[in-house]
Design a protein around this nucleic acid. Sequence first.
DNA 1: TCTGTATGAATGAACG
DNA 2: CGTTCATTCATACAGA
Lengths: 178, 178
Amino acid sequence: MDEAMSAFCVKAGSVRGGGGNGSTGTKCGRWNPTTEQVKVLTELFRSGLRTPSTDQIQKISTQLSFYGKIESKNVFYWFQNHKARERQKRRRVSIDEKDLFHQEEKISPAKHFAELNRASDPERVIETLQLFPINSFGHDSDQKLRLHVNEFRESAEFFYNIGTEMEHPRLDLRLSFL
Amino acid sequence: MDEAMSAFCVKAGSVRGGGGNGSTGTKCGRWNPTTEQVKVLTELFRSGLRTPSTDQIQKISTQLSFYGKIESKNVFYWFQNHKARERQKRRRVSIDEKDLFHQEEKISPAKHFAELNRASDPERVIETLQLFPINSFGHDSDQKLRLHVNEFRESAEFFYNIGTEMEHPRLDLRLSFL
DNA sequence: TCTGTATGAATGAACG
DNA sequence: CGTTCATTCATACAGA
């Protein structure tokens, strides 16, 4: 536990861009992204960006600051978390699906669809994302600014013996006291 | 926020395994554990299980699915919350105790006792709990098997160390699709 | 019906 | 990167 905990409050009132965020008073202490910020970040992620470089983080942060207070580390963490959670979720769901046949489907296909939908995100991960430069200040050097390609692997991983695969692992959860 | 807020449960409202579920028709929208499920989870927790591994979560989830609809993430969240709240409560109590010098019992002694009692669980936390080793289908190697793809060890450690002064090119992140 | 509380779910932050 | 912690949001449910 790092007990440093600076905790600087700031939170410019409720300047929050425009989206909802009606949630709370958004005190302070930790970054609370505006809907616009989330939107952009999500879109970048969906575009394939998973591990932005320091430069990219810097740029993204700068741009997002337009919508509200934000720091580089926020962007950094956002991507770390988003990526990690996408994987974690995928892992868990896929596991559940195998167990589904158990008592599955006596319910509307809608539900099944919903679950599948959530888990079926195209695995296409474009590690390289083109952050289109614009000549915002006229004298922009107009350089293409190609963001280097990160290695994308994701090969070896998951699917470790979930218990020798299938047929009900048949282990007893009915603890003695039940 | 999260665009994928799907999952309309429908909860066939019938399958409930062992009866119980005194709750109700349990519509859905969020997991509503049956009394049996809570019982098992609680017992596991009391046994010392605090942070089940992914494997354990799967197994627990599978077993609990007998009592009703449940997903891995539900188990995951359950332990996460339970642990956090126990900790939170404990902290609260200790704070209150110090507060006693100033406040001195505004609440009935009974209630206070109850809280203290509940929070005073032997700190012994068996982080690793042998999940019912019933010699079911045995070969559950239970190993972590974490493949550490060591690439760049710590290259991307944030800390906005923009390093070599590369003047950040003005590029626009306002994606066209926004 | 309204309100307070318990708890499921989500996520920012950070650790190992 | 996977995991864990802290805090907060959202909702089911009990009591008044």
